[in-house]
């Protein structure tokens, strides 16, 4: 079955406290020069009909009011 990866991230302009927390922790670990960190979710799945994935994302995997999503296909081994 075709495999796909869905990337879900908070919409731009919505405060992302997880990203901010990661960003603030970095200098203490010696990582300088890293900014604009955003934390989202990644879902991998197999789909017999990948054409239906956008609908699936809008209905369940993402909340379109607050999140953007991207679908990538993964080539099977």
């Amino acid at each position: 079955m075709p495999r796909a990866r869905v990337l879900i991230r908070p919409k731009e302009g919505i405060l992302d406290p997880q990203g901010k927390a990661v960003e603030r922790a970095l200098p203490a670990l010696g990582f300088e020069g890293i900014g604009n960190v955003h934390v989202g979710r990644m879902v991998e799945l197999e789909a017999s009909d990948p054409a239906r994935l956008p609908e699936l994302c809008e209905k369940l995997l993402a909340n379109p009011l607050i999140e953007d999503f991207e679908i990538e296909s993964i080539d099977g081994p």
């Binding site: 908070p10 919505i14 405060l15 406290p17 997880q18 909340n63 009011l65 607050i66």
Partner: peptide, 16 residues
Amino acid sequence: CETGLLPGALLRNTDL
């Protein structure tokens, strides 16, 4: 909110 019966969404608390 997820069902769409109410407007808006609930996000992680600002201070996590």
